[in-house]
């Protein structure tokens, strides 16, 4: 089942007299439960595409239908509500709030939903144990390693049970061992929880974990390759 449909998706902005077009009439379908890697050189439009799918940016033209809803037509506040329901964002630099504990960081997205304190507690506990950090719930980000911080960020991304996870260079700031652990965790989330994951990466080794890799250049798809990895882990 197609979850994300991009049709003639274009994003452009002006810089002085120049019109810059990071995305240029892109067509793309993403199946539910797919692990998609976006690769390409800097300025190819992969992060722009990720941001459009995550609803934190709006296309200049074209349509972007997610789960049957064209999100390019949503107002700013409706888009914020949509993000809270559909998207879990994993950032390269984790973006944890330094004054909140791991538990409180993970709890943040749940504050946007009508849940009791008990329900929130149960969900945060589940998310933290899924990422293997149940025993670090009361630690502040400064008391965690980079890999642990990213795992807290992943717990935060999945805690509200969104359909789509977007990850922008999720291992870009981690050492090799931590990066491997994070990628295995992400792969498990797709496999066990049925999440759809779209990931931007520069690293071909990281992209190997995806079920499909798209290469972008100058705002267009240039190549598309599938990997057996997902089948292998299944």
């Amino acid at each position: 089942m197609v979850l994300i449909e991009c049709r003639k998706l274009t994003k452009e902005y002006r810089k002085g007299d120049m019109v810059i077009r990071p995305l240029d009439g892109l067509d793309l379908d993403v199946e539910a439960g797919e692990f998609l890697a976006l690769m390409g050189p800097s300025g190819s439009g992969k992060t722009t595409l990720l941001n459009l799918i995550a609803g934190i940016d709006s296309p200049t033209s074209g349509s972007l239908v997610i789960d049957g809803q064209d999100i390019s037509k949503l107002s700013r506040s409706a888009l914020a509500n949509w993000r809270a329901t559909y998207i879990g964002y994993i950032f390269q630099l984790y973006n944890l709030v330094p004054v909140l504990t791991a538990y409180e960081n993970v709890e943040l997205p749940l504050l946007l939903h009508k849940l009791s304190r008990k329900e929130r507690h149960e969900r945060v506990a589940t998310a933290l144990s899924l990422v293997g950090l149940a025993d670090r719930h009361d630690h502040y980000p400064r008391q965690l390693s980079g890999g642990q911080e990213q795992r807290v960020a992943i717990a935060r991304a999945i805690v509200a049970d969104p359909k789509i996870l977007v990850a922008d260079e999720p291992t870009g700031d981690l050492d090799k061992a931590s990066a491997l652990a994070i990628m295995q965790l992400l792969q498990r989330l797709v496999r066990d929880l049925g999440k759809t994951l779209i990931m931007v990466t520069h690293d071909p080794n990281t992209a190997e974990f995806a079920s499909r890799t798209l290469h972008l250049d100058k705002g267009r798809l240039v190549d598309q390759s599938g990997h057996a990895t997902m089948e292998a882990v299944r």
């Binding site: 995550a54 934190i56 700013r76 506040s77 914020a80 509500n81 949509w82 993000r83 809270a84 329901t85 998207i87 964002y89 950032f91 630099l93 973006n95 709030v97 943040l108 997205p109 946007l112 935060r156």
Partner: peptide, 14 residues
């Protein structure tokens, strides 16, 4: 600024 961007990305209104 980045943290505020993150909060918006999570779905918190301005």
């Amino acid at each position: 600024v980045r943290e505020v961007g993150m909060l918006q990305a999570l779905g918190f209104a301005r």
